[in-house]
Design a protein around this nucleic acid. Structure first.
Lengths: 156, 156
DNA sequence: TATTGTTATACTCTATAACTATA
DNA sequence: TATAGTTATAGAGTATAACAATA
């Protein structure tokens, strides 16, 4: 193969990495998210979870006692998507819907004991996947990235 | 309403922001990406584009002359998705498929004059949407965020 | 044999509207 | 009137397998 077809040091598969898109934060965000989502789903699959259901379970484990509405807002999901996520977790005995005493329209989603146990194991899998994903970053860089993303994800 | 139901200074809509998920880089990535995607699609809609088709157009405008295969890898799309994205842009006269002289299996995707003109206008809309999205970040922070995301998005 | 682009297909995700029971 | 949850449904996005042409 003639040298002219591979005139740079960049590998053939990465020819496009010199694109201006590489300076576009939204594009980088999309690509990084695609990689993180794939890695997360793969790591959680052995526990029967995905990134979505793991997030709901994680919030149900906490003291906050979130309503489905709050879950939808926080996770940027449609309320109807929360219904089916909670349906699934409830069918598997991992969370329960409890009535909110202060608002009889609302359900509070709380983890069962089995849900807490599964969450603990899943959390470790997710964290180890994240460590692999952040292999190119130092611990300080990972923390800094999280801080900057927080500004973007929670404005105001 | 009794004070005990709103015991913190956090607004009711943001009660969950104290969750440990808020320290999870992958969750923050997902939420930030959801916001950026929505803002991007909204900004590009007036030009008849979405984030996906804009990215393809942007790469077709450059000198790189990417093949559909390269577009798929770079944008982390399935090759079949690239087919329909290019189909659509081509139908609208914004890009053309040119045969790759060095590989008769491959199509090279290049922007037409109309495509270049539209890209220029769309780029401005996308950039101004991004400035709004990054309102909480300084210019230095935005640049830093992009650098860190690049490490995540393009490992190796 | 392996790869590029293509088609067809199924599956997941997302968004919308309409309904009920509450507020 | 407005909101929480639910249901149904349609649309967008994603993933898979199979095929023709070419390497």
């Amino acid at each position: 193969m003639p040298a002219s077809t591979k005139s740079t040091a960049v590998p053939a598969s990465g020819r496009l990495e010199q694109s201006v898109l590489t300076e576009d934060a939204s594009f980088l965000l999309a690509r990084a998210n695609a990689l993180a989502l794939a890695a997360g789903n793969e790591a959680l699959a052995e526990h029967g979870l995905k990134v979505r259901s793991y997030a709901v379970l994680a919030l149900a484990v906490e003291e906050t006692r979130p309503s489905q509405r709050e879950l939808a807002e926080f996770l940027r999901l449609d309320p109807s998507q929360v219904v089916s996520l909670v349906d699934d977790l409830q069918r598997r005995g991992l969370v329960a819907r409890e009535p909110d005493p202060t608002d009889r329209r609302a359900n509070v989603v709380v983890a069962t004991e089995a849900g807490r146990a599964l969450h603990e194991r899943a959390r470790e899998a997710a964290q180890s996947a994240q460590r692999r994903l952040h292999a190119a970053l130092s611990a300080a860089q990972s923390e800094q990235l999280a801080e900057l993303l927080r500004l973007l994800a929670f404005p105001g």
